[in-house]
Nucleic acid binder design. Structure first.
Lengths: 102, 102
DNA sequence: TTATATATATCGGATATCCTATATACATAA
DNA sequence: TTATGTATATAGGATATCCGATATATATAA
């Protein structure tokens, strides 16, 4: 039952999609920009096999779209539907973690 | 690839352990108290099959201990090791979600 | 005693996250 | 043209989270 590491209580997975919507709600970005921003925040950079399937799923769900494509660089932005999903998730997030940050 | 629901962007799993440590960092509680508090925060109450294995893992990791047992009611509290793990996780959490709440 | 409610416990499995490895396409420098 | 670097893409699989169903133990009420 080695569920937790030495000083780590959880891996905080399940929030990648939420974080991507959050970042895109501030400004359109492409995959590598998002990965780099997540690296700064979390401490480790998500691999290509992590970030691109996540973007694909969010796009498939109608939460984001390709805004621009220059060479292989695809800039994504939130759709209205994605904005709505983000705000709903943000409300839940805020209520859930009320008091954790203070 | 039905990864996301209609208006939901993620299920925010992976944070149950973190939330339990957070709640116990404020005061000792027993399993049902924790489940009820999570119900208020998240909107749905974690099932016994969710909460008790989580407590067991955290105890196994040395993050919490049984402080008192009355009948079947077990009150848990954080160990110093659990406090440390919580603070480390909290720092990471804060850095990761900087700007989401505002 | 019997019935009911509460709290804890565990098994099995569904699901999702995430990574490793690999491949492809485009741009630019040599 | 060739080489190199960058960005995207996907298959396959390891792992973890979480829940549904079920069982057990204790306390209390009828």
């Amino acid at each position: 039952m080695p569920r937790y590491g030495d000083e780590e209580c959880c891996d905080m997975r399940g929030l990648l999609g939420f974080l991507i919507l959050f970042l895109l709600s501030k400004k359109p970005m492409h995959g590598q920009e998002i990965a780099d921003e997540l690296a700064k925040r979390r401490g480790d950079k998500p691999s290509p096999g992590t970030i691109y399937p996540a973007l694909k799923s969010l796009k498939y769900a109608g939460f984001l779209r390709e805004e621009e494509k220059v060479g292989k660089t695809i800039t994504y932005s939130l759709t209205p539907r994605g904005m709505k999903a983000f705000h709903i998730a943000k409300r839940r997030f805020t209520r859930t973690f009320l008091g954790v940050l203070s």
